[in-house]
Nucleic acid binder design. Structure first.
Lengths: 200, 200
DNA sequence: ACCTGAACACCGTTCAAGT
DNA sequence: ACCTGAACACCGTTCAAGT
């Protein structure tokens, strides 16, 4: 019944619904119909549990787009899929970032990305930088959700922060999804720039 | 003696040295030579304290570069300064991200950035997207520090993850600072792309 | 007005005791 | 082999009591 796998899945559920602070050993045990102390028969502690959680979330990232013969399209689809995973599980980011990369699935993800960048014609050192840049963009955009921070209406910002108000308003007129458009813009410009650096 | 200002400064100190989880009301009170309960005479709770902390960190961001008549140079310097603040206080990112932007100083920062993007010749909706993209890049790069996750030597990765090993090795040959180079690359390509979008 | 001690309901984790 | 109750040292927060 109880297993590392089941515990990790329940943990992701708890984090998704109750937030990073809601993931307590007691709440997790409750969801599994068990007492907190029982969890320690399967994981050595909360830190160990977070490693499993990292692996679980990373396993959701679809690597298939990286095999696309059109590398720009492939990278764009990969990046969108990567970001979608963390938009589905935004509460995990603060929990999992700044941890060492040890889950095999996560190492495999980076390896596949770097291989794809290599096939695109980037030399390995450039590929490393490009992979880092992609990572920053995806995690930053999933973590921060620019728009969500501005909780008041543009009109309220206008008196003291006119440029902010104007930008929020103009962007709203373009439709919802400023976060998505900001990410798309950066991704497109990044891929444009990388294309200019690929060997022929 | 005790004041919101002094408490916030001590809190930043505690977070910097003891990590996000090290910031407890008791540890903070200790550093101030007082008991935890005393803090509640000045802040309404830990959440309130984190608002002050956000304001304090944001106040470190230098907005002067945004007035540079050469907007590309100004934005690059601003972004580097912004990132430097969070590299100095990396433990604050997970603590402060995903909070509503309410500190006046933070609203002012975004307003100044959007005004600068407008002066550069971007229309307001494009400026909003560019500001979001910059934010993602800065916070993502300060949060994640790509390199720090790979704790083992490249040789250890090679058997199972050759592209990863090759990229880490080639990047190390280029010198330390893969994170900085990844950020610089993305920033440069972003600014290049924005330049093409500015009105003449 | 502000600091404190004691208390509350919560944490993660351990461990002897059960089955 | 695995679950549990009780306990430990910790959390954030409250509040009556002190000065």
């Amino acid at each position: 019944m109880l297993s590392r796998q089941a515990i990790a899945e329940a943990a992701l559920d708890v984090v998704d619904t109750a937030g990073p602070d809601g993931l307590t050993m007691r709440a997790l045990a409750d969801r599994l119909g068990v007492k907190a102390a029982s969890l320690y028969n399967h994981v050595s502690g909360k830190d160990d549990l977070l490693d499993d959680l990292a692996a679980l979330v990373n396993a959701e990232i679809d690597l298939a787009p990286l095999d696309d013969p059109d590398w720009r399209r492939g990278l764009a689809r990969y990046a969108h899929g990567y970001r979608a995973v963390f938009l589905r599980h935004p509460n995990t980011i603060a929990l999992l970032a700044r941890r060492r990369v040890e889950a095999d699935r996560q190492l495999l993800t980076y390896d596949a990305l770097l291989a794809a960048l290599g096939r695109a014609g980037l030399d390995p050192a450039d590929a490393a930088e490009a992979a880092a840049a992609l990572d920053y963009l995806v995690l930053g955009s999933a973590l921060e959700t620019f728009t969500a921070g501005f909780t008041r209406g543009a009109a309220e910002y206008r008196p003291r922060h006119p440029a902010l108000a104007g930008a929020l308003e103009a962007s709203a007129a373009r439709g919802p999804g400023l976060d998505d458009r900001g990410f798309d813009l950066a991704l497109r410009l990044l891929l444009d720039g990388l294309a200019a650096r690929t060997a022929p």
